[in-house]
């Protein structure tokens, strides 16, 4: 039986890496366009996982397994696409703010952003505003995503935005924030461009900020 793009999306949805890889190869062999395999098959499956996660019917390990299955396929197919054809929605720089070591949420957001088609730079944890600004100058991300789990450290989000202003960089980059103590009110207060309560919404938010939603 011939493999279909839908089967591939299902394999990603099921978090089945081996099957995702096998079906990606079969689809390539059958002459399916590599871009379609990625966008509709691999990312299509991931996007359904996002929907279910948001609805509370899928959970963190489901998301991780699906992300892994997606990567297994992408790895295989991506080298076959001419560099200029690889679509990226943009570059997101993700980090956990200064004095904060919590990275589970941040890493989930990274997975969802990659699944949505962004190029993501992982800045790590305990990243000072000065370092973020330095990285923005060097790496030119379209979006900065900051995470904080403590009410004490979330204030560094504000410091970062102020430093970006001082350095004249604020207009060049969008800033989105998240984490347990963070809220839309706080985002408004510090003039961030967006807030999201979970990893899937973060990817949707990033998409809307680059005009892709």
């Amino acid at each position: 039986m011939a493999a279909t793009i839908e089967d591939l999306a299902q394999a990603v949805f099921d978090g089945d890496s081996r099957k995702a890889k096998k079906l990606s190869q079969k689809l390539l062999d059958a002459g399916e366009a590599p871009l379609d395999i990625i966008n509709q098959g691999l990312m299509g499956g991931m996007s359904e996982v996002g929907v279910q996660f948001k609805a509370g019917t899928m959970f963190v390990p489901d998301v991780m397994a699906a992300a892994e299955a997606m990567s297994a396929g992408v790895e295989l197919v991506k080298p076959l696409i001419a560099h200029e054809d690889i679509q990226s929605l943009g570059t997101v720089y993700m980090c956990t703010v200064k004095a904060d070591l919590h990275d589970i949420g941040k890493n989930l957001v990274i997975m969802m952003l990659e699944g949505a088609g962004f190029n993501v730079i992982n800045g790590g944890v305990d990243v000072a505003p000065e370092k973020i600004v330095e990285d923005v100058k060097e790496l030119h991300p379209d979006i900065i995503g900051m995470s904080a789990l403590l009410t004490t450290t979330m204030l560094h989000m504000k410091d970062t935005i102020e430093l970006l202003k001082e350095e004249g960089l604020r207009d060049q980059v969008k800033v989105i924030i998240g984490g347990a103590p963070v809220s839309q009110d706080f985002a408004d207060e510090i003039a961030a461009d967006g807030y999201s309560p979970d990893a899937v919404s973060a990817a949707d938010l990033a998409k809307s900020l680059v005009g892709a939603a």
Binding site: F59, V60, P61, M64, I104, N107, L108
Partner: peptide, 8 residues
């Protein structure tokens, strides 16, 4: 302890 959901 880290989270089981992200690291088994």
């Amino acid at each position: 302890v880290t989270t089981l959901g992200t690291n088994q």
